[in-house]
């Protein structure tokens, strides 16, 4: 990554989140994500990584502090954000085509434009051959691909992903990770990615945020300076191994604390 100054895509300052009278889930989070970054959030369960994602999306409100997405409040920035959930969250009564077009439909994009965009997306993620299938006919990996295509169909500037490939087998996950980076190179969105897998985080990210639990806070930030494009060869490089070891160690430190 170059050192030029860019306007931040996401800016959190002094963000805390408390549910009711429980101890805070997140405390005093300061985090700035530049345009084009791929940031992974990693940490033990209960460290508030998913909550952080929900705060940036505006699905929940911060108890204190400020959050800006593209200089706007999360709610006002909704049109520029897409969210990919842990499960594919496809509508079973709709075909693949119709699922991918859902976001555009809800945003009242005309039918012709929708058709064109969906066709392009299906081709991009390699789903054209199952365009008319229903979700139940697809494998887990395919479903997730439909979910990614649906998120990208609305041409987001910010992509929030909450362990999207967590339920998939390792081979499928690796392949989808490579595809995700290819799509990113073509479309240039900013990404915030929640994961449990160190290898996945290192492979995808330009920066990894290690979170510590109770209360959730940022423990460490690790820049990943592996060159793009990253491929399966990247995973075999010694630099990759070094990063994995480094992040794993940071994560262990957080666990034992």
């Amino acid at each position: 990554m170059s050192t030029e100054v860019r306007a931040p895509q996401v800016a959190l300052s002094g963000v805390s989140k408390t549910y009711g009278s429980n101890p805070p889930v997140l405390q005093q989070i300061d985090l700035t994500i530049a345009k084009g970054e791929f940031v992974s959030l990693i940490g033990p369960s209960g460290c508030g990584k998913s909550t952080l994602l929900k705060l940036i999306s505006g699905l929940t409100n911060a108890t204190s502090g400020s959050i800006l997405v593209d200089g706007m409040t999360p709610l006002n920035a909704r049109e520029t954000i897409s969210y990919i959930f842990q499960d594919a969250t496809l509508l079973p009564w709709r075909t693949v085509t119709s699922n991918v077009g859902l976001g555009l439909e809800l945003e009242r994009v005309s039918r012709e434009l929708r058709r064109k965009k969906v066709d392009t997306l299906l081709e991009l993620v390699g789903l054209t051959h199952v365009a008319r299938a229903y979700p139940r006919q697809l494998s887990g990996g395919m479903k997730m691909r439909v979910s990614v295509a649906r998120a990208l169909a609305t041409t987001p500037r910010l992509l929030l992903m909450d362990e999207p490939f967590g339920a998939l087998d390792e081979m499928t996950r690796d392949r989808l990770n490579e595809e995700l980076l290819r799509l990113r190179a073509e479309q240039n969105w900013t990404a915030v990615f929640v994961t449990h897998s160190v290898a996945e985080a290192v492979f995808l990210s330009t920066r990894i945020i290690v979170l510590a639990p109770s209360p959730g806070r940022i423990a460490q930030e690790i820049k990943i300076n592996l060159p793009f494009p990253r491929t399966s060869v990247t995973r075999e490089s010694p630099e990759f191994e070094t990063y994995v070891t480094h992040v794993s160690r940071a994560l262990r430190g957080v666990h034992s604390a």
Partner: peptide, 11 residues
């Protein structure tokens, strides 16, 4: 999460 999905598209 399906409700969240719809909300994210300003439904």
């Amino acid at each position: 999460n399906l409700i969240h999905l719809f909300l994210m598209h300003n439904a």
